[in-house]
Design a protein around this nucleic acid. Sequence first.
DNA 1: TGTGTTATCCATAGATCTATGGATAACGAA
DNA 2: TTCGTTATCCATAGATCTATGGATAACACA
Lengths: 226, 226
Amino acid sequence: MDNESSYSGSALLYEQLARIGKVLTHAKRIELLDLLCQGERSVDALAAATAMKLTTTSAHLQVMRAARLVEIRREGTRVYYRAASEEVCGLITSLGDVAKARLAEVEQILREIDSDSMGTERITRSELLVRVRQGDVVVLDVRPSTEYYAGHIPGAISIPLEHLEAELLAIDPAAEVVAYCRGPLCLLAPQAVALLRERGRSARCLEDGMPEWRQAGLPVSLGDQR
Amino acid sequence: MDNESSYSGSALLYEQLARIGKVLTHAKRIELLDLLCQGERSVDALAAATAMKLTTTSAHLQVMRAARLVEIRREGTRVYYRAASEEVCGLITSLGDVAKARLAEVEQILREIDSDSMGTERITRSELLVRVRQGDVVVLDVRPSTEYYAGHIPGAISIPLEHLEAELLAIDPAAEVVAYCRGPLCLLAPQAVALLRERGRSARCLEDGMPEWRQAGLPVSLGDQR
DNA sequence: TGTGTTATCCATAGATCTATGGATAACGAA
DNA sequence: TTCGTTATCCATAGATCTATGGATAACACA
């Protein structure tokens, strides 16, 4: 059949791709990567965040490191892991895209929890930029504050979802709120929007989340500077 | 540690993503997917192209179908497989991007075979569009002809790499040749360019290949129509 | 109703992962 | 030096994949 053989040397190439694919075999590893796309974390913190034993977490991280998907930084007795590149986060995004397009179950799962914030479109990144310039929106980062510090949308305020109810008064009741979180598979922002609407606020989710914002080449603020 | 628990329901989500990841565990499966992103093929043809036994190939295809990454079309006693969506091809592309960014070995492998066509940048898709309008380039599809029929760049001529030497005279010696193939990991176009240059022709590769062209939303011609 | 094609189904030996407890290593602080 | 901390290393039982031969199913065509 035509020429397939001259494609030969590529067996090696596909082998390399598979090496990366093997990392994505395991739900917890994907979760770790997703988390690491939000900023660096210690092994300890990752274990807590994913509800795994320390040794197991460490083992998974070793695998990811061997495949060069993550890198580390040592600080005293601590080791901080981070995603090795933008492309890695892009890969997770792609994976999510396929899942959303192909697995009815995903749609289903997302819809179930997302139902309260449904009925309104998410706001696009470019529209948000315009609205921010006009100054008539409050941009709300509802991720854990460590993730906010590791990088957030310029001008956004940080109120982790769990504190949102208590700090509701800090948000101008007249302004529309645009909430964002980790990405299209993360439910923090939709939950925040649901809560806000219950309290009579006008609120919407941003399309996608922080990694996608970064990948779009838009500006990112660090630390507690707005 | 801050709020991680409210992220709960997502365990299910990551499970779904992992389901897709499991397909990418195996070099041959990635090769199959890559092939299917060029157009549909029968089990038989896929087995031949990837040098696997029919039963093994079929088994792999079942796995990919279960994960909804590929779909089938029956025709008599034949079954034709195809990629289930654009996103699937995008996922393979992402995987390649990560590999290129992170695995030195990949760079190495690519460089080894690519060396002859190095030293010249690849031409971008937008530049090619301009040049085609000007009419001073020959666009050359060097993939197997079945893949050309399944979709090619408008105006491109089809000369599978293996026939290139014999049909060299069919190409205007005055024009610059832009060759393309399956994508950045495919070596057909670089090899074609190397051959052309050896014969004193002016030739370059297109950036990426057919799937990326399609993903960029550019027009695609079918069958033998130019 | 036979026969040849093209695929899938099935069972299974072998090869590969995964989670985990316990030991070890590298530090920082007393 | 001696403890706590934070991680990695190691060995291993259990759980999961993978490749393949042989049987079976669905068709096309005499």
